[in-house]
Computed example of a mutant assay.
Amino acid sequence: MKTIAVFASGTGSNFAALTEFFGDERRGVRIAMLVCDHKDAPVVAKAHAANVPVFTLNYRDYANKAAAEAAIVAALPPVDLVVLAGFMRILGPTMLAAFPQRIVNLHPALLPSFPGRTGIEDALAYGVRVTGVTVHYVDAGVDSGTIIAQEPVRVLPTDSFATLAPRIHQVEHILLPTTVAALLAD
């Protein structure tokens, strides 16, 4: 059985998609831990409901990012892959060294276009007709790692963030679990 750790910061819709997808033991993947940087984030309750162990931390409780990441590394059980599913922090050298080429991120745009926190908003502001979702390896840059999988999403002339974001999330909820499964099948 392969194991993953999921890092998330918010509501946890992608965490829920992963738990649903990998809830079938025949898929051969188990979520070993959720790491969250907000103890009251809704994703924490989702993890408890799914019987997934949770490690929460407040980065401000540590001297620096390296110390916080060292605490995460120490808390994690052995995992085959780290999956960032709405984790709103840039990982530093401590995490990257602990899991070389074993950290993947989900991004709500077709990279290399529109990296960073506001991918959906930036795509709308630029006026693209197609945006999408990317799963990529994490490196030292911001959304600059090698692309693993992408799926386009059409932008309608009448779209706003409120109408486009749910369609982006629907694609995320399929692309992330299937990509993680494919990576772990190799």
Rank of each mutant, 00 (worst) to 15 (best):
A125Q: 15
L91N: 02
A68S: 14
I90N: 02
G127A: 07
F55Q: 12
I72F: 05
V54S: 06
T118C: 03
T56D: 04
L110R: 12
A63R: 15
D61K: 13
F99M: 12
N105L: 10
I72A: 00
P53K: 12
A125W: 09
L110N: 11
Y137V: 05
A109L: 09
A70N: 07
A97E: 15
A140K: 14
L96Q: 03
D143C: 05
V73D: 10
V79M: 12
V83C: 08
L106G: 04
Y137C: 04
A109I: 06
F114S: 02
H107A: 05
A97G: 06
L84A: 05
R89I: 00
V104F: 07
F87P: 00
A67C: 11
M88E: 00
P53W: 13
A66R: 12
L106E: 06
E69Q: 09
H136L: 07
S113R: 15
A67Y: 11
F99D: 09
V52H: 04
I72R: 01
D122Y: 00
P78K: 12
V135H: 11
V104L: 04
P108M: 08
T94E: 15
R129V: 11
N58L: 09
S113E: 14
V52A: 04
A70M: 08
V130M: 15
D139H: 14
V54W: 08
R89F: 01
F87D: 01
R60W: 08
V104G: 04
K65I: 14
V128Q: 08
D143S: 04
T94D: 10
A98T: 08
A71C: 12
A75L: 07
P112T: 14
P100M: 03
L91G: 01
M88K: 06
P53R: 12
L91P: 02
S144W: 00
V83L: 06
H107W: 09
H136R: 07
P115F: 05
L124A: 07
R89W: 05
F114P: 01
L110E: 11
L110I: 10
P115M: 10
A98V: 06
G119W: 04
I90P: 00
K65V: 14
H107I: 07
L81I: 07
A140T: 14
I120K: 01
P115A: 09
L57H: 12
